[in-house]
Amino acid sequence: MAIPKSDESWEKGKYGPIWPKTPANYGFTIIARVKPGRADAIRGYGAKLAKALESDPSLLAPLKLHYLRWVLFDDDTRFMYQGIFDTDFDKYTEDAVALFKKAGVDTVFENLEDFPEDWKTNPDAFVRFVRAHQCPSFLEYGEYPYVSTDEIKKALELKSAFSRMLEQMQ
Rank of each mutant, 00 (worst) to 15 (best):
Gly44Met: 08
Lys101Gly: 09
Phe129Ala: 04
Tyr81Thr: 05
Tyr92His: 10
Asn111Val: 01
Tyr144Trp: 13
Gly13Cys: 08
Ala98Arg: 15
Tyr92Ser: 13
His66Lys: 11
Lys48Cys: 00
Thr121Phe: 06
Ile84Tyr: 12
Leu60Ile: 12
Gly13Asp: 09
Phe73Cys: 03
Lys159Ser: 08
Tyr146Cys: 07
Ser58Lys: 15
Gly16Ala: 14
Ser6Arg: 13
Ile152Asn: 10
Asp95Leu: 13
Tyr67Glu: 01
Thr93Asn: 08
Ala61Gln: 12
Asp95Trp: 15
Asp86Lys: 06
Ser58Trp: 13
Pro20Gly: 14
Cys135Lys: 12
Asp114Lys: 09
Leu68Gln: 10
Met80Pro: 00
Glu113Thr: 10
Thr121Met: 03
Pro57Glu: 15
Glu157Tyr: 07
Lys102Pro: 04
Arg128Phe: 05
Tyr146Ile: 14
Ala155Ser: 08
Glu54Pro: 00
Phe28Trp: 05
Phe100Pro: 11
Tyr67Ala: 03
Leu65Ser: 05
Val108Trp: 03
Ile42Gly: 08
Phe109Ala: 05
Lys64Tyr: 02
Val130Ala: 02
Ile152Lys: 06
Leu63Pro: 01
Ser160Glu: 15
Ala103Pro: 00
Tyr45His: 08
Lys102Ser: 15
Asp118Ala: 11
Ser163Asp: 10
Gln168Tyr: 04
Ala132Trp: 03
Asp7Ala: 07
Val97Glu: 13
Leu49Cys: 04
Glu113Ser: 06
Ser9Thr: 14
His66Ile: 00
Glu143Val: 05
Arg78Tyr: 14
Ile42Ala: 05
Arg38Met: 14
Ala24Arg: 12
Gly104Gln: 11
Arg43Met: 09
Phe129Lys: 06
Ala132Leu: 05
Pro62Met: 12
Pro57Gln: 10
Leu53Arg: 06
Pro23Asn: 06
Glu11Trp: 04
Gly16Gln: 10
Glu110Met: 02
Glu54Tyr: 02
Ala155Trp: 01
Lys120Trp: 11
Trp19Lys: 10
Arg131Asp: 01
Leu156Thr: 02
Lys64Ser: 09
Ala96Tyr: 14
Leu112Phe: 07
Pro36His: 09
Gly37Cys: 07
Pro145Leu: 11
Gly46Leu: 01
Lys12Ser: 14
Lys35Phe: 09
